[in-house]
Design a protein around this nucleic acid. Structure first.
Length: 379
RNA sequence: GCUGGGAUAGCGAAGUGGUCAAACGCAUCAGACUGUAAAUCUGCCGGCUUCGGCCUUCGUAGGUUCGACUCCUACUCCCAGCA
């Protein structure tokens, strides 16, 4: 019995760039799409209703965090992530690999990693099998293979992380196939696996990694460990990676989207989905995206601005509230301010990605890109 | 009226002879944030500055001392207790 494949239709392709639809068991994702970061099974400060209203199509939760609480078994009991959260739409999980980079207390070895819980000091052991099992219990539509994320310019370290990721890949796949077969036999919905390309900013390592990944029996690909501000180098890496990866499977650019130009770069060079914590994190800290660049709503100049943050924005914040009001909410630290700012930023990236999609479909991507970037980065 | 205690930068509060433009917290003013240990973190925070310093400050006015936010005197105001 062959496990079902993740269905991905490409509607239009221009060079590496494409617009398509990913069909998940919980609904379709029109791509390119921005996926909301819901690390602990919620997009911070936002309800699912708000996420839907601003046009979000999918969310991404984190296996490591859900292992800590409430535990994968409980989410399985609840019927899986989509049901547990009430989101009832397409979902992704990250594998826990990023926490090898983001958490200082992570001891990495050949088999996996041991985290020391920041909550109570518990040892949390993760490896490909544990991550796959946890992700199957959590039950997102799309899983990431357990990899090692790294942010370094030291080629030896980057190579080491890449080789570790490569060594872990067959274990991810084997465990995933095993769990997929069991689920299929039990009549449960399918879940899908993306393999993650590593190699930092080194072209030869990226090629090597992409070539290995391209040959795997997986449903799609993640592109990991790109955190640099060196835009051109990043663009080049994404491009050469996607030239190697098979065209008919979706690619997810992991964690990139702190800067709107990341979305353009990603889409232009063949990525279909993106996730990033920046829109919501920065929103909570008062940084709002506008077509003319980022603004800090806490700045004194907004105290008396009785017009919207962005008069042309169609989000709930800009439709109903002034910048002066949001400024006030931030100054007195009311939670509503964080919510409104998060709606605005999330809407901004979702809308921008939607427009990128539209521009691909009607052959105006270059025009849209240059106009957007010229305005956003004018100063 | 008496007896104690106290007055330090926007606020609160350390400092009790020199290393004090003055700890620390808050506020102010800015900055950062890329598969979220992030409602977090950083800088600034008397004035001027060629960023090396220079100048003016610790209720007010005097005094002691080489040197005072720190000791003495008087005054002003605040607080507590007693009348």
């Amino acid at each position: 019995m062959l496990a079902p494949q993740l269905k991905f239709d490409i509607e239009k392709q221009t060079g590496l760039m494409r617009a398509g639809v990913i069909h998940t068991p919980h609904g379709d994702i029109q791509t390119p799409a921005f996926v909301g970061a819901a690390t602990r099974a919620t997009v911070k400060a936002l309800t699912h209703a708000q996420m839907r209203e601003l046009g979000s199509q999918a969310i991404l939760a984190n296996t490591y965090h859900l292992i800590l609480a409430p535990g994968p078994a409980l989410i399985a009991q609840a019927g899986g992530l989509a049901a547990f959260t009430g989101w009832n739409g397409p979902t992704f999980t990250d594998s826990g690999g990023f926490q090898m980079l983001s958490l200082t207390d992570a001891k990495i070895d050949h088999d996996g990693v041991t985290f020391k819980s920041h909550i109570n000091g518990d040892k949390i052991r993760m490896n490909p099998e544990i991550s796959m099992q946890a992700q199957w219990q959590i039950g997102a539509d799309i899983h990431m293979a357990f990899d090692q994320a790294i942010d370094s310019t030291d080629k030896n370290l980057v190579r080491q992380a890449m080789e570790r990721t490569h060594n872990w890949l067959p274990r991810n796949i084997r465990e995933h196939q095993h769990l997929a077969a069991a689920a299929q036999a039990a009549g449960q919905p399918a879940q899908f696996l993306y393999a993650v390309v590593q190699g930092g900013l080194f072209e030869d390592l990226r090629r090597q990694s992409a070539e290995l990944m391209a040959a795997q029996p997986v449903d799609g690909f993640g592109i990991g460990s790109l955190y640099t501000t060196e835009t051109e180098a990043t663009a080049n890496i994404i491009k050469l990676t996607n030239e190697i990866l098979p065209q008919d499977k979706p690619r997810h650019l992991l964690g990139m989207g702190s800067e709107p130009r990341d979305l353009f770069i990603g889409a232009q060079y063949g990525c279909d989905t993106f996730d990033c914590v920046a829109p919501t994190r920065q929103a909570r800290n008062g940084a709002l995206y506008t077509p003319n660049g980022r603004v800090n709503i806490k700045n004194a100049r907004f105290r008396h601005q009785f017009t919207p943050v962005d008069p042309d924005c169609d989000c709930y914040l800009c439709q109903y509230f002034t910048a002066a009001y949001l400024h006030h909410l931030f100054k007195v630290d009311e939670i509503t301010g964080k919510t409104l700012a998060s709606i605005h930023n999330e809407r901004f990236v979702v809308r921008t990605t939607d427009r990128i999609r539209a521009s691909i479909l009607n052959d105006s991507f270059e025009d849209y890109k240059s106009a957007f970037l010229a305005q956003y980065y004018a100063n």
